[in-house]
């Protein structure tokens, strides 16, 4: 279980302090697909970085199965928005990076690599270097690389944000497929509302500065899902609700900016 307890993050520099996160509380169950949706600058990446152990909280804790997170670790895999494949390693070597780090035996590594290349449909590209891959393929490798390390939680920071709309849809379906096959807890960040509803069990809607969770919504849509869902009345009703919350938020922000 991934618990976020009373989390605060304040950035201080010479001239100003910014409250990036304020009293964030989350209870994410094992194998749950949790999505945080919010406008850019609401602190959602900071939250994910704290969960990954790449940043420290100002106050409060995040714990995984009762252990408070103090630094990065292989129990929490991460997929970044930017392409972070190791360019000097081929696709299969990238996927094998984590298992090799854990010094698993070569047979085991190979079977893991094969498995995750298969589920991410990358088998025929396994010998290629990242420079030869498209953006969508790079992110598929990044997902395979994170999963091959067998983390308990997969943290995803707008992983499809840089992809074109068509590729993004394909990647979302692929991610759900992988997740259903290989049960994992996923904490996923996006500013794309369609993406959030399509993927999530639970949606956390965040507001900007200070970043707080404005509403938690359960997504009642059945699984397995495919993209025909996005035109069902239920989907549209949820989208409308979220949009209204976010619009209200942006209107306020705009008014505050105007003074």
């Amino acid at each position: 279980m991934l618990y976020v307890n009373g989390l605060y993050k304040t950035f201080v520099d010479d001239s100003s302090t910014v409250n990036a996160l304020q009293d964030i509380n989350m209870h994410i169950e094992p194998n749950e697909f949790a999505v945080i949706v919010g406008p850019s600058g609401c602190g959602k990446t900071t939250l994910l970085n704290i969960a990954a152990g790449l940043e420290n909280a100002t106050q409060g804790t995040i714990s995984l199965n009762g252990n408070i997170i103090t630094g990065p670790g292989p129990d929490r895999g991460m997929v970044f928005q930017s392409y972070t494949l190791f360019p000097w390693l081929t696709v299969e070597q990238n996927v094998a990076f984590g298992p090799r780090q854990q010094r698993l035996n070569p047979m085991e590594i190979e079977s893991k690599v094969d498995h995750y290349l298969k589920v991410t449909e990358l088998i025929q590209f396994r010998k290629m270097y990242p420079k030869a891959l498209s953006g969508g393929m790079k992110q598929r490798v990044a997902i395979a690389r994170a999963l091959a390390n067998d983390p308990q939680v997969l943290l995803m920071d707008e992983p499809f944000g840089a992809l074109d709309a068509q590729t993004r849809v394909v990647m979302q379906e692929l991610l759900l497929q992988v997740w259903e096959e290989d049960q994992k807890t996923i904490l996923f960040i996006t500013h794309d509302i369609d993406e959030a509803i399509f993927l999530a069990d639970t949606i956390y809607i965040m507001t900007r500065q200070p970043g707080t969770i404005k509403k938690i919504m359960q997504v009642p849509l059945n699984r397995p899902r495919d993209h025909s869902f996005i035109i069902t009345p239920e989907f549209i009703r949820m989208k409308k609700e979220i949009l209204e919350l976010i619009w209200e938020e942006s209107k306020q922000a705009a008014m505050e900016a105007r003074g």
């Binding site: 790449l54 930017s82 943290l155």
Partner: peptide, 26 residues
């Protein structure tokens, strides 16, 4: 790129391996 290092940390890279397996090859 810092993200390359961060990615390696989340994959369990520690200590000298950060140099030998990430920083140096990059």
């Amino acid at each position: 790129p810092g993200d390359l290092l961060k990615a390696s940390y989340t994959l369990g890279t520690r200590g000298t391996a950060v140099y030998t397996r990430v920083l140096l090859p990059a």
